[in-house]
Amino acid sequence: MTETMQDIRLLVLDIDGTISGKINQVSPQVLEAIQAAQRKGIKVAIATGRMFCSAKRFYEAIASDVPLIAYNGAWIQDPLQTLPHQQLSVPADIALDILDFLSTKNWRSQLHLHVYHNDELYVDDFNERTAAYQERTGCKANLLTDLRDIVAQAPTKILAVCHTETVPKTLLPLVQKRYTQQQIYCTQSTAVYVEFTSPTATKGQAVKFLTEEILGLQAANVMAIGDNFNDREMLEYAGLGVAMGDAPTALKAVADAVTTSVEEDGVAEAIAKFLL
């Protein structure tokens, strides 16, 4: 840890695996800790890979009063405003190439695709995983016969929902060979989710924008908590980056501190330790 708790004026929280676990909502213990931090004058923000529409209920649950970061940083918007502060897209040519690459027979037997555009979800196959996703996120999937039509419009995000936890281990290295970091940002957000966004859309860049451009603060004023690879840039940027207890070893390695797991209310523990 490089900063003292007196420096922290903004707490940034991931949703899934951080403030939301199996029950798909913020636990009373975590909510109480967040409210205690807010009473001390610390602003609390959400930075998630989720859709904007899916993240809003968590934003409301914690009574955040700063813009919400969705789609791993591609979308930054105050829910009370009609226009986003930032809305980044995957370039159409790259998006179409990703779609073609992931639509080959080999990959389509191992994953299915979600495409996000204008905060709407599009799929070309409605299956049990899609139904479960709808139920968990509260956002309806639009069924298309051909995803190329929407992908050609430069989508906000493409998500590969892998059928097993071994698929990302094979897919990610191939993606890194096929595309440069200037073409696409590709990350893993859960054991089976591989996400594609604009190369400038990361939680780290979004938290930097929120901190410095919107709130007029500095990295030293930020504490961020996350649980997976898509949180890495955010934890690296923050003056105090905290990894959840069940985060991958590589994420814990870049964090300043490690708390307990989401099911053990690790966020509440971290807030109590560093902010209260």
Rank of each mutant, 00 (worst) to 15 (best):
A247K: 08
V161C: 07
N142S: 13
D231F: 10
L96I: 11
G266A: 04
Q81P: 03
Q218T: 15
A61M: 14
T4W: 05
V242I: 15
R9T: 10
P84W: 02
D149P: 04
F101T: 04
E32N: 14
Q176Y: 09
N228F: 15
V207Q: 05
S20C: 13
V123L: 05
L144Q: 06
D256K: 10
A61N: 06
K177L: 14
T2E: 11
A74W: 01
L251Y: 13
K208R: 15
A141Q: 10
H114W: 12
L80I: 07
P173T: 08
L210D: 03
E263F: 08
A132I: 01
P173A: 02
A36S: 08
I19S: 11
L11R: 02
T82S: 14
G226P: 03
I19M: 09
Q218V: 00
D100H: 09
A131Y: 07
N230Y: 13
Q25R: 12
D119P: 03
V207Y: 10
L251S: 04
R50H: 06
R108D: 07
V254N: 04
Q87N: 09
I15A: 06
V242P: 03
V44W: 04
V12C: 11
L240K: 13
A55E: 02
S20Y: 01
D100I: 03
V90F: 05
L80S: 15
L143F: 04
C53Y: 13
D246F: 13
I46M: 07
H112P: 01
T200W: 05
V115W: 00
P248L: 05
E60S: 07
V161Q: 05
G226T: 01
E128M: 05
T2A: 08
Y179A: 12
L113T: 03
C162V: 06
P168A: 07
Q81W: 01
C186R: 01
G17A: 09
C53K: 15
V262T: 05
N72Y: 05
T180M: 08
D265F: 07
A191D: 15
D265E: 14
D125F: 15
Q29M: 03
A206P: 11
T48V: 07
A45V: 08
T211C: 12
I98F: 10
P91T: 00
S103W: 05
L235W: 01
Q181A: 12
I158L: 15
Y59D: 13
R148P: 01
A191N: 13
S261P: 08
T4P: 07
S189G: 12
K22Q: 07
A37N: 02
D7R: 12
Y59M: 11
A201F: 03
N228T: 04
N230R: 02
M5A: 00
R108M: 11
S89I: 10
M51I: 10
A63R: 04
D265R: 00
A63Y: 06
P79L: 13
C139R: 04
L251A: 01
I62M: 14
F58V: 07
S89L: 06
H112W: 10
A74I: 01
E120S: 07
E128T: 11
A141L: 07
K43D: 08
R136Q: 14
R232T: 01
T202D: 08
V26M: 00
L88C: 09
E233F: 06
E165T: 14
L171I: 11
D97N: 12
Y193P: 00
D246C: 13
R50S: 11
K208M: 13
Q87W: 01
D97E: 15
F101D: 14
D227Y: 10
A201V: 09
E165Q: 15
S54Y: 06
